[in-house]
């Protein structure tokens, strides 16, 4: 299908983008890899697309005060190739190859993925597992939102209608930190049926500060708090038993299958966290 008619504007600055959003039924256009697909299918029909790809300074990847900062317009392919990300945010580096396919990673942006907040997407879950933060700018100025407070509902975030997400930050990995990532998808690059991104502190043979962020099992990426506590006690069987996820059936799998697979992934990721990957 073809999209319904809309107008197009290329924003030259954040101020211009914010002003344009205030006047119209408008949508920001970043990589377009989710937005244009929904327009083509006429799932959405905004009056105006505001292309932010021409705004300078939003695609950097850099170390900043003990954090790795990734600009909203950094393309998935650039994040995938980044040495800084590989070294200081290894969880994100591990997730990148699972996001769609090469041609889509050449266009899709980090910020677009977080702002779109697909419940089966990898990056929102990574952000949650890492305890990251999100910078946004709107008519009232700049603010920073914790990942734990950002994902509000199905495709719904803490961003207001005139907010632009400008950057995302995650703490740099330290020696004592361990990360785990696994997902199950029907075809490589498809959205996950179920996935898990995890971070923990290695504490002798035990784990501390466990953060488990599941995706594909709810309306947002979800922390499994009870399983986190059980895993910190060192018992993976208890952690699997403590999983209190409540997925719905979807086109890919039934709720029962998803719950089962979540347990399978938790065992795999626990092995990664304990350095006993099979």
């Amino acid at each position: 299908m073809k999209p319904a008619p809309f107008a197009y504007a290329k924003a030259r600055s954040l101020d211009e983008a914010i002003a344009l959003m205030g006047e119209n039924d408008a949508r920001l256009l970043a990589g377009g890899q989710s937005l244009i697909a929904t327009l083509n299918m006429r799932l959405s029909a905004p009056e105006l697309l505001i292309d932010i790809n021409g705004i300078g300074g939003l695609d950097g990847i850099a170390l900043k005060d003990g954090m790795v900062e990734i600009g909203a317009l950094a393309r998935h392919a650039a994040v995938e190739r980044s040495d800084t990300v590989a070294k200081h945010a290894p969880l994100i580096a591990r997730a990148m190859p699972h996001i769609a396919h090469p041609a889509i990673r050449n266009r899709g942006t980090f910020g677009g993925s977080i702002a779109f907040a697909d419940p089966a997407a990898e990056l929102p879950a990574c952000l949650l597992a890492l305890g990251g933060e999100i910078d946004a700018i709107g008519p009232k100025g700049k603010r920073t939102i914790e990942a734990d407070d950002f994902f509000k509902g199905l495709f719904e975030t803490a961003l207001g209608p005139q907010d632009v997400l400008t950057a995302v930050r995650v703490p740099t990995a330290t020696n004592g930190m361990r990360f785990g990532f696994a997902e199950l998808a029907r075809r490589h690059g498809d959205y996950a049926i179920v996935g898990l991104a995890a971070a923990a502190k290695a504490d002798g043979k035990k784990l501390g500060d466990v953060r488990l962020a599941f995706f594909g099992v709810g309306e947002t990426p979800i922390r499994a708090n009870k399983a986190e506590a059980a895993l910190a006690q060192g018992n993976v069987d208890n952690a699997v038993a403590a999983l209190d996820l409540d997925p719905s059936d979807d086109a890919q799998a039934t709720a029962a299958v998803k719950k089962h697979l979540a347990g399978v992934l938790l065992r795999r990721v626990t092995a990664q966290l304990l350095g006993r990957e099979q």
């Binding site: 197009y8 697309l49 041609a103």
Partner: peptide, 8 residues
């Protein structure tokens, strides 16, 4: 390479 259907 990009998707020609996902760029304007």
């Amino acid at each position: 390479i990009v998707r020609g259907c996902l760029m304007l």
